[in-house]
């Protein structure tokens, strides 16, 4: 410290010394830092566990991978089923969530909007087992006529080839259940972003003679675009990892098939497959299942990361 020390009174020196020593600050900073660190450690712990346990399954063949040629032959149909169910869910949930969010933020009178927002948030509080039971016992059965109609009228599209099972437990049913489950998170994020659209831009559009919908297209959507994308990606993250509902709704099978409204030929998802098989698995089969978990971990992580990254980039731009 090459500083010329000016002669100072003792009182000044102590005042400077004391200003940094607040106990509350130190405690809170330590608490915050250790909480952050703990989360990093937990995440790293999960990753390490999955890599260590799962990598043992890389060479598994035959019985250890449930009769497939290699681990990849086992993972691929599951990964495919996971992605298919989640993508169906997003195709249904995204427009619905954006519509509901718009109604809450821009259309409904305040009391209605509040109630609606509250109801949607409540959807997030329902346990996924309940969604699964609802999916099997109510939704699936009631969708059978609709599936029959689809098969008759759109059966030439490979998606709707059928045959339609009497239980209605199909890939499309799983997708719909996942859509309902992902709805709250997408709606909540979209609602926040829509409500943050600067008033002055909305008024600028209205003053030019825009209708409400034109105003939304001119100001709200451009402003909220990155927020909407990240909301959908976070919803996708939720759908990818969902276990119980899918495990209950889908009949387990290991196939790659785009046939959405049949039971025998539909793929299962990674999470549901682990839930269904882990109890009976032992030895090398456990490693195999953990490896599928690692694949899911990587995919979910990537999707969430992408969602956050897009959200952050949007903030920086706007």
């Amino acid at each position: 410290m090459a500083m010329t020390t000016e002669p100072r009174s003792d009182r000044d020196v102590t005042a400077i010394d004391q200003s940094t020593g607040r106990v509350g600050d130190v405690v809170f900073a330590g608490l915050a830092r250790s909480s952050g660190l703990l989360i990093m450690l937990a995440l790293a712990g999960v990753a390490v566990f999955l890599v260590v346990q799962g990598s043992g399954a890389l060479g598994n063949t035959g019985d250890a991978v449930y009769g497939k040629d290699s681990i990849w032959g086992y993972v691929w149909p599951l990964l495919f089923g996971t992605l298919l169910a989640s993508v169906i869910a997003m195709i249904i949930a995204a427009p619905l969530a954006i519509g509901v969010a718009l109604i809450i933020s821009h259309y409904a009178p305040r009391p209605v909007a509040k109630t609606l927002g509250w109801l949607i948030d409540l959807l997030a509080a329902i346990p996924s087992v309940v969604y699964g039971l609802w999916g099997i016992n109510f939704l699936a059965l009631n969708l059978v006529p609709a599936y029959d109609w689809l098969q008759r009228n759109a059966g030439w599209i490979p998606f709707f080839e059928g045959p339609v099972p009497n239980s209605g437990r199909t890939m499309l049913t799983a997708g719909i259940v996942l859509a309902v489950m992902a709805l709250p998170i997408i709606t909540a994020i979209c609602r926040e972003v829509f409500a943050q659209t600067p008033k002055m831009h909305q008024e600028a559009a209205l003053a030019l003679g825009a209708t409400r919908w034109e105003m939304i297209r001119m100001t709200v959507f451009p402003y909220a675009r990155s927020g909407m994308i990240s909301a959908v990606l976070l919803g996708l993250g939720r759908a990818l990892g969902e276990t119980m509902a899918v495990a209950l709704v889908l009949a387990p099978s290991l196939l790659v098939s785009f046939n959405l409204i049949t039971a025998e030929q539909s793929s299962s998802t990674i999470a549901a497959n682990i839930a269904l098989n882990f109890g009976n698995a032992s030895g090398a089969k456990i490693d195999t299942l953990i490896f599928t978990g690692l694949v899911l971990f990587i995919i979910t992580f990537a999707v969430n990361f992408l969602g956050r990254a897009i959200a952050v980039r949007g903030v920086a731009k706007g």
Binding site: H201, E203, A204
Partner: peptide, 8 residues
């Protein structure tokens, strides 16, 4: 308006 508000 009071504050300039071109569409960003």
């Amino acid at each position: 308006f009071q504050r300039p508000n071109p569409f960003p």
